[in-house]
Write a protein that binds this DNA or RNA. Structure first.
Lengths: 135, 135
DNA sequence: CGTTGTTTACGAAGCCCTTCGTATTGACAG
DNA sequence: CTGTCAATACGAAGGGCTTCGTAAACAACG
């Protein structure tokens, strides 16, 4: 167990997304609900879940013969750390530059832009003051 | 050569950031300007630059004995693709969810939030929202 | 010409991720 | 008990990334 599990790898993240959506699931259930583009053999999924269990990314209930796995990390926390990691590696820590790229039309549809506007508008403390810009 | 070079790996991105900041540089210059946390041996940097050259991530001028390398990809384009990749892998394509995580206080300082507000405010007006694309 | 120092080129080792094959265990029907 | 089916555990192969050691090419100097 780890208090601070490491960032999930690529394949781990794929399984994590299934667990986040479905909640606790057996190996077979996870395998069956993988998007077709991420299809993998049964033992591959099993092995991955075992690794995730060892890393602290997943917990499992062994009370029945068929183990039931669940995500040990909440999606928001993990996603936030993934974003922080990219901000650091690609933007030297400047989060606003990442947002700038995310706003480009190829990435954000008009609908998503509208949602983003709503997010900004809903932020607490809209007028900080010292930075000078008025809201 | 590739018209569409692949995404840079972790170590490649580190060198790319030096090239983006400094412009065309020799192997030694790149090595000398790596942040201390990313220090690497001379031949490591050389090998990496050769690989980046083969992948189309860097170009080089061989007119003098000491080759001069330069980034073959602009920062914005590369950063955008890195962001798109993460949006796909971690958020199922929902860019606004990535932005939401980027807005969290751990990632964006108040000053950066102000900049982000400014970015949003400067966007072309899409007040029509979902149905309202004008043509 | 030989020496010295710098640069490029090549190859290989070590590590991690991903995938799967095989063996073992357990439950259950006949 | 015995055979069958599903699930777990284990190990290993294959590939990519990262790092570096070593050799070869080249220039400059005495």
């Amino acid at each position: 167990m780890r208090r601070n599990p490491p960032l999930p790898t690529d394949a781990e993240l794929r399984l994590l997304r299934v667990l986040w959506e479905r909640g606790p699931s057996t190996v077979r259930e996870v395998q069956d609900h993988l998007p077709q583009s991420d299809a993998a053999g049964y033992t591959t999924v099993l092995k991955l879940l075992q690794i995730m269990h060892a890393k602290g990314l997943a917990v499992r209930d062994e009370s029945s013969r068929t183990h039931v796995y669940a995500a040990a990390v909440p999606p928001e926390n993990t996603q936030k750390r993934l974003v922080a990691d990219l901000v650091e590696r690609a933007f030297g820590g400047a989060a606003h530059r990442l947002v700038l790229q995310a706003l480009s039309p190829e990435l954000a549809s008009p609908e998503e832009l509208a949602r983003i506007r709503a997010l900004i508008a809903a932020l607490p403390d809209s007028s900080a003051g010292e930075a000078g810009g008025e809201g």
